[in-house]
Design a protein around this nucleic acid. Structure first.
Length: 202
DNA sequence: CCGCGGATCTTCT
DNA sequence: GAAGATCCGCGGA
């Protein structure tokens, strides 16, 4: 898909989309498109896998121990990005849900690259196949060039945005347990598009 | 295909 | 001082 086609076939998500319970926003983000403008290039991918991290009773969430400087964004207004450093090396992208003052965010775990694939491939020299380009939370931030400089930005406008197809595709959603956590690992807060090849772990 | 361990650094104990 | 919402290359089946 070209940048021009992307703009004509999609529209930006509004804040109301994010101003809802995290467990509603997480599955609804599947099929939506992340667009990153970087160095004059447009890089974009379809969301194929997400995880919800809640404010109450979810001990795996970064917000579980309350409001600190690093978790401030999670408690802030919906429709913003929360980007943090994972394992000292990789950045992970979350989108904030819930009304202002309440914690809740959605980890973006995998993308299907759509626009700027050539640039994405240059950013991901270790990826051998197309399906390896953004099939993981650390991979997709490398692929699109999303760093902590995007922490706290408004994704309803600006250089990092989320868009939806004017004519949505139809797909089945699988709901299962989250990956890579020890606390609250039994909660079924992971969602992905069934039979999609770009999911991190089916 | 599967399991293992190293890299690397911020945050909290 | 240790753990953590990860990725990659290596060795073996």
């Amino acid at each position: 898909m070209t940048h021009r086609q992307l703009i004509s076939r999609t529209r930006r998500l509004k804040r109301a989309f994010f101003n809802r319970p995290t467990l509603d926003v997480a599955p609804d983000l599947l099929g939506k498109i992340i667009v990153q403008k970087l160095d004059g290039h447009v890089l974009a991918g379809k969301i194929v896998e997400t995880e919800a991290y809640l404010g109450n009773g979810d001990r795996a969430a970064h917000s579980a121990r309350g409001r600190t400087r690093s978790t401030e964004v999670i408690f802030g207004p919906p429709g913003h990005a929360y980007v943090y450093l994972c394992y000292g090396m990789y950045e992970c992208l979350n989108l904030i849900a819930e009304p202002d003052g309440e914690a809740g965010c959605v980890l973006i775990r995998a993308l299907e690259p759509l626009v700027g694939i050539k640039q994405i491939q240059q950013r991901r020299p270790n990826a051998k196949r197309l399906r390896d380009l953004a099939s993981g939370p650390g991979k997709l931030t490398l692929a699109l060039g999303v760093t902590r400089s995007r922490n706290g930005v408004d994704v309803t406008r600006g250089e990092l945005t989320v868009r939806e197809l004017r004519e949505p595709a139809v797909f089945d959603i699988v709901q299962t347990t989250r990956i890579g956590i020890s606390l609250s690992h039994d909660l079924p807060y992971r969602f992905y598009i069934k039979d999609n090849n770009f999911v991190s772990k089916p």
